[in-house]
């Protein structure tokens, strides 16, 4: 990795290969599904909508230069596809009600944000050593070091050490991604 840092290529396309696209799929699929569930009740339908969003992403892959842009595209596309779906259902049900709302409702905002926060938390905790992971989970849930010590039956100083180690590991991992 390090030896590559010197190479700079401007304007290289972002989602150039299948590998990278696959990774984006693995990263966001579940979060997008849980976001889609805000609109549709059915899990399979939510998953189908998210698949459609990825198909659109692939078509437009050349237009993205950063993961942040991809991410907002995916959430936006999922939302639009879900809204379209709702509209279709309503038409079918005889109640034609086409409010095309470009502004996100407060509940939608919360849903986008919480899906994304949760997605990051899950990926954050994954791959950490077991003890670190447990400490981190509990502390994210809002427990104090003392409580964690009691739950895990370890000394507070050990809790603190695990926590510090966890953050350190995360920092090296996330340093570049934000």
């Amino acid at each position: 990795m390090e030896e590559l840092d010197e190479i700079t290529l401007e304007e290289t396309l972002f989602i150039e290969n299948g590998e990278c696209f696959r990774e984006l799929y693995d990263r966001y699929f579940c979060a997008l599904c849980s976001f889609a569930m805000r609109y549709v009740e059915d899990r399979q339908l939510a998953a189908d909508l998210v698949q459609d969003a990825y198909v659109a992403l692939w078509r437009l892959r050349r237009n993205f230069r950063s993961e942040a842009a991809v991410r907002s595209f995916l959430y936006t596309a999922t939302r639009n596809l879900a809204l379209n779906q709702l509209k279709r259902n309503r038409i079918r049900g005889g109640r034609l009600n086409l409010e095309t709302d470009d502004v996100l409702e407060p509940e939608e905002v919360q849903s986008v944000m919480s899906s994304e926060v949760k997605r990051q938390l899950v990926s954050l905790v994954e791959g950490l050593p077991r003890e670190c992971r447990r400490v981190l989970k509990l502390s994210i849930e809002g427990k104090s070091y003392k409580e964690i010590g009691r739950i895990m039956n370890i000394a507070v100083s050990t809790v603190r050490n695990h926590r510090i180690r966890a953050v350190k590991l995360l920092k090296t991992r996330f340093r570049q991604s934000s």
Partner: peptide, 20 residues
């Protein structure tokens, strides 16, 4: 698939991806 590839995705995207 290596983890580092993804971690580097956002910031070092250009470098890592062109290499991969």
């Amino acid at each position: 698939r290596r983890r580092w590839m993804m971690w580097s995705l956002s910031a070092c995207a250009v470098v890592a991806l062109s290499f991969s």
